[in-house]
């Protein structure tokens, strides 16, 4: 499959701090890719650079084979509303909906109108006075109605009620069926959005820790929980991503796939063993354990 977004050895420094540390990432056309990780991991910076709002200190970013920075034809194919998006003074919803189509060749008034209604976005209130959820709603309307070939959602769920979240997923998938596009979505609501992704990228401290088909994330790590001594014995000589314990009980997330012997041993010792869920995986890679290693695409350790 052709890649739509191609990031190569990209680094972004802000003064002395390194926000993005030599990452490479390609996103295939038509993919709905989850960009996961803790706050400050670098998710917004990656999106911002893809959208040409920022540019790398070194390395390269290409969208449809061209660098997006100051590239008008590429920028018209990208939609990115950041989680703290600012709007011009005194703007109301109708100002946004009136001007956005000028910059988005594929804009759909129907999608915008329906969503704005269903999200109950106030029409008379200045955007400056919007609640967090209302701001998220405006961002989702812009992202979905633009039908941009590359659509970036930066924490789209912040403050959004459950009805709106369901509506967002529904509209995304319905509209995607008629107008396929490449979607990159960052979120902390992993359980709720997990089934949307065909691809999962976990970022921490500016580096890509996991890059995997969503189908295979269950093989990247497993969790063991039970009596501390049993867990210690089972996890000896293994790469522990994350561990926590409370009075004699311990739970660890271990990198790799649990083989049959380990499973049998765990059952024998009275420990519970299960593939790590995606939230567990994200939590594990966000934890400050020195042993953590990167898992490359499709890798099954």
């Amino acid at each position: 499959m052709t890649s739509t977004v191609d990031i190569h050895s990209m680094t972004r420094r802000f003064g002395r701090s390194t926000a993005i540390d030599d990452i490479s990432l390609t996103v295939a056309g038509g993919s709905i890719c989850g960009l996961l990780g803790r706050n400050g991991a670098g998710k917004t910076t990656i999106m911002s650079i893809i959208a040409g709002q920022d540019r790398p200190t070194s390395g390269s970013v290409e969208v449809f084979g061209e660098r997006p920075f100051e590239n008008e034809s590429i920028l018209s194919k990208i939609s990115f509303v950041r989680d703290n998006q600012r709007y011009p003074d005194n703007y109301r919803l109708h100002h946004v909906l009136r001007i956005a189509p000028d910059f988005a060749p594929e804009w759909s008034d129907d999608v915008a109108g329906e969503l704005a209604d269903e999200f109950r976005i106030p029409t008379q209130t200045p955007i400056k006075k919007f609640s967090r959820g209302q701001l998220s709603s405006v961002a989702i309307v812009l992202g979905l109605a633009s039908r941009a070939p590359v659509t970036l959602f930066d924490e789209p769920y912040l403050g959004l009620d459950v009805t709106a979240r369901v509506r967002f997923h529904d509209t995304l998938l319905r509209d995607y069926a008629i107008h396929p596009r490449t979607v990159l979505l960052s979120t902390h609501l992993i359980e709720e959005s997990e089934a949307l992704f065909d691809r999962v990228v976990i970022v921490d401290r500016g580096r890509i820790r996991v890059d995997s088909d969503s189908e295979h994330t269950g093989q990247l790590a497993f969790t063991l929980s039970g009596p501390s001594d049993a867990i210690d014995r089972l996890s000896a000589k293994r790469t522990i991503l994350h561990s926590r314990s409370v009075s004699g009980l311990k739970s660890v997330t271990i990198q790799g796939l649990a083989d049959a012997d380990t499973s049998a041993e765990a059952v024998r010792l009275g420990a519970r063993i299960a593939p790590a869920t995606l939230p567990e995986l994200v939590a594990a890679f966000g934890a400050d354990t020195p042993e953590t290693r990167d898992i490359k695409k499709g890798a099954v350790a």
């Binding site: 040409g52 100051e70 509303v81 998006q85 600012r86 011009p88 003074d89 910059f103 988005a104």
Partner: peptide, 18 residues
Amino acid sequence: ASVATTFPFALTLGATRR
């Protein structure tokens, strides 16, 4: 105002700085 708050929004819409 034509630059301060409009610039980030213009870039979000997809304008180049130029």
